[in-house]
């Protein structure tokens, strides 16, 4: 079990969404909204192209927490705000800082950044230590 203190930064998680990740995630999650899997459809509705599922990006934020804290049992709560859109083939970095620790639970502020924009911002997690 890692040792944590308020003010600590958790290890950053960096992930590059490959060009087919939205297809795999659509199948895995059941979310087949064509803005994620159909380039022409996405452009027709004014997007630059296919975009990431927000819940896939949230899963990266979750993974940053569980990998830092020692497993899936540690994640008790995760609250995210989505902003803008995530795109394919651009690295995403999840940054997390421990705000406080009370009764063995770390309260963590976290964001996901892509190409200079926080696509998940003002978000926070509770981790059972």
């Amino acid at each position: 079990m890692p040792s944590f203190a308020a003010g600590d930064e958790l290890p950053e998680l960096e992930v590059v969404p490959d060009r087919y990740v939205t297809v795999r995630y659509a199948g895995a999650s059941g979310d087949f909204n064509p803005i994620h899997i159909d380039e022409e459809f996405a452009k027709q509705v004014g997007l630059p192209g296919r975009i990431l599922h927000g819940l896939w990006t949230m899963a990266q934020v979750a993974r940053a927490q569980t990998e830092a804290a020692g497993g899936p049992h540690t994640l008790r709560r995760l609250n995210v705000s989505f902003r803008g859109m995530g795109v394919l083939e651009e690295p995403i970095t999840v940054k997390s800082t421990i705000r406080s620790i009370e009764d063995g639970v770390a309260h963590v502020d976290t964001e996901a950044w892509q190409a200079g924009t926080a696509i998940v911002r003002r978000s926070d997690a509770d981790l059972q230590l």
Binding site: V21, A28, S29, Q60, R63
Partner: peptide, 13 residues
């Protein structure tokens, strides 16, 4: 399938 789609590597999954 889900774990692989989101990049999980923890063998528990």
């Amino acid at each position: 399938e889900y774990a692989l789609a989101v990049g999980e590597t923890n063998p528990l999954h």
